Computed example of a mutant assay.
Amino acid sequence: MEAQEEIERWVLSVCEKIGLRAADVNADFFEAGGNSLAAMKIISQAEETFGEDALPPDDLFSRSTVREIAACILANSGRAPVTSES
């Protein structure tokens, strides 16, 4: 599986876990119910999974679809996610 797709799935999974209604990669984080608290949660999870500064707040606020978030994480971390428990 391509790293971008793997990270997109990870983003969708995190959105679901924090109660957002992101149905697909074109879903916008904020339109799906994301707020500043949810933003801090996904940023924290991204750093835990992909490393420090994997998802800077400025990136999340300016590129907020699931696909764009995944692309930012991929660009900023330079690696695929560690296997997570699901």
Score class of each variant (00 low, 15 high):
residue 11 V to F: 08
residue 50 F to V: 03
residue 64 S to L: 04
residue 34 G to S: 10
residue 35 N to E: 06
residue 40 M to T: 14
residue 43 I to V: 06
residue 59 D to I: 00
residue 80 A to C: 09
residue 58 D to L: 10
residue 37 L to Q: 02
residue 8 E to P: 01
residue 79 R to E: 12
residue 72 C to R: 07
residue 58 D to F: 05
residue 61 F to H: 04
residue 57 P to H: 01
residue 68 E to Q: 14
residue 57 P to M: 15
residue 73 I to F: 03
residue 74 L to D: 00
residue 39 A to W: 01
residue 82 V to S: 15
residue 32 A to R: 00
residue 17 K to M: 14
residue 51 G to L: 00
residue 44 S to N: 14
residue 27 A to H: 00
residue 80 A to Y: 10
residue 71 A to W: 01
residue 8 E to K: 07
residue 36 S to Y: 11
residue 65 T to C: 05
residue 72 C to D: 09
residue 45 Q to C: 13
residue 53 D to I: 00
residue 12 L to Q: 07
residue 20 L to W: 03
residue 34 G to E: 04
residue 17 K to E: 15
residue 38 A to M: 05
residue 86 S to H: 14
residue 81 P to V: 11
residue 57 P to F: 13
residue 2 E to I: 08
residue 86 S to E: 12
residue 70 A to M: 00
residue 82 V to I: 13
residue 28 D to C: 09
residue 39 A to F: 06
residue 69 I to F: 08
residue 1 M to W: 11
residue 24 D to I: 11
residue 11 V to L: 07
residue 72 C to Y: 04
residue 48 E to S: 13
residue 55 L to W: 01
residue 23 A to P: 05
residue 80 A to H: 10
residue 81 P to M: 09
residue 78 G to V: 03
residue 28 D to I: 00
residue 85 E to G: 13
residue 58 D to M: 07
residue 26 N to P: 11
residue 20 L to A: 00
residue 28 D to G: 07
residue 4 Q to H: 13
residue 70 A to Q: 03
residue 67 R to A: 11
residue 31 E to K: 09
residue 23 A to S: 12
residue 84 S to Q: 15
residue 30 F to A: 02
residue 10 W to V: 06
residue 28 D to H: 13
residue 39 A to Q: 02
residue 46 A to W: 04
residue 39 A to I: 01
residue 60 L to K: 02
residue 68 E to D: 08
residue 53 D to Y: 03
residue 66 V to K: 09
residue 70 A to T: 05
residue 29 F to R: 07
residue 14 V to H: 08
residue 56 P to D: 00
residue 23 A to Q: 15
residue 32 A to L: 04
residue 67 R to H: 10
residue 44 S to T: 12
residue 36 S to V: 05
residue 62 S to C: 05
residue 35 N to S: 14
residue 31 E to Q: 06
residue 75 A to V: 07
residue 1 M to R: 13
residue 24 D to R: 09
residue 71 A to C: 08
residue 67 R to G: 08
residue 45 Q to H: 15
residue 31 E to M: 06
residue 21 R to E: 15
residue 3 A to R: 12
residue 11 V to D: 06
residue 75 A to P: 01
residue 69 I to C: 06
residue 60 L to N: 10
residue 3 A to H: 14
residue 76 N to L: 04
residue 66 V to P: 06
residue 37 L to M: 13
residue 27 A to R: 04
